[in-house]
Design a protein around this nucleic acid. Sequence first.
DNA 1: TGGATTACGAAAACTGTTTTCAATATCGGC
DNA 2: GCCGATATTGAAAACAGTTTTCGTAATCCA
Lengths: 170, 170
Amino acid sequence: MAVKKFRELDEALVRQKEAAFADFIQKQGLKTTRQRNTIISTFFRMRGHISVEELLNQVKQANPRIGYATVYRTLHLLVDSGLVEERRFGDGLARYEGHSDVEHHDHMICLECGEIFEFFNPRLEALQESLAEENDFQIFRHRLELYGACKDKDACQRRKSRTGAAAAEE
Amino acid sequence: MAVKKFRELDEALVRQKEAAFADFIQKQGLKTTRQRNTIISTFFRMRGHISVEELLNQVKQANPRIGYATVYRTLHLLVDSGLVEERRFGDGLARYEGHSDVEHHDHMICLECGEIFEFFNPRLEALQESLAEENDFQIFRHRLELYGACKDKDACQRRKSRTGAAAAEE
DNA sequence: TGGATTACGAAAACTGTTTTCAATATCGGC
DNA sequence: GCCGATATTGAAAACAGTTTTCGTAATCCA
């Protein structure tokens, strides 16, 4: 029962994402700019479910002249490129999710500490699929969010230090 | 296999809701007003997942002087009273759901025709519960949305005429 | 390197929602 | 039934998050 180190920041993976984005930009006939590079490098080096404000704050450390507009625009590009997903958890702000280990996953949101955990369960997926089928519905995508609480403060804090990923092994 | 008539507008149920709201208002030491009455009667006589704008349009037919502010305020009261639930399906606007047959349910959203279907499946619920438990997570509430398409236009239209409820028997 | 084209940044615009504020309605007590 | 404290209304302003505008600046292909 080795404790798997969860989501070590993988420099190679980050570089790969950056390259993929550069590729996308090129293919779209868009231009490579300092700002875009700053923003995406920053983004891919952050973890979790990142809000625009969080990202901008971080970006400003590298280049204080970058403003909201460019961050928003670049995030749209990231979403269009397929490298990033936009999520909304009902607190009114968009959050962006970059390099995930898991292709698709769902979320548990702790209403105590605000932490967002990811999980994936094939039975859940299968069940949804069969339910949809029963109703002649074809699923393109879905969203499942569990809102609640880590059972106790301690567990909550321990997890927090593991950077927003749960449902792996404990 | 009798085809159950789905969600006939039940005047008695509407009255019951209205009474429950009146009760709530009283208990909170708030006042009964024409506008609130107009708004909630209108609301409870509509079906589906109602946006503020849809409701206001309808309300204005009864009383054109009622504006957004009062509708918003009344909807908040309805939510506080527990008679109505607020939902957000990622198109940026809040939708409100009134008299449901089913206590809790999830949603299938057809991206072709925009229709929203409700469904409930105990196995799905149970599975979520056990998943949460495995991760020491206590669920307060959850949200599951399947986005996709009715398999064909015909089925889609047939359902549409049945006022936004699927997943019962066909 | 020139020059068409795209991107930037600050500020204005926009959308859905909430709040403000002066005028009005409600309702318990007389 | 009327008074008056209190809640509510409606129009407009405020707000938050996001998008667009517009003049300036950077990119990059020929």
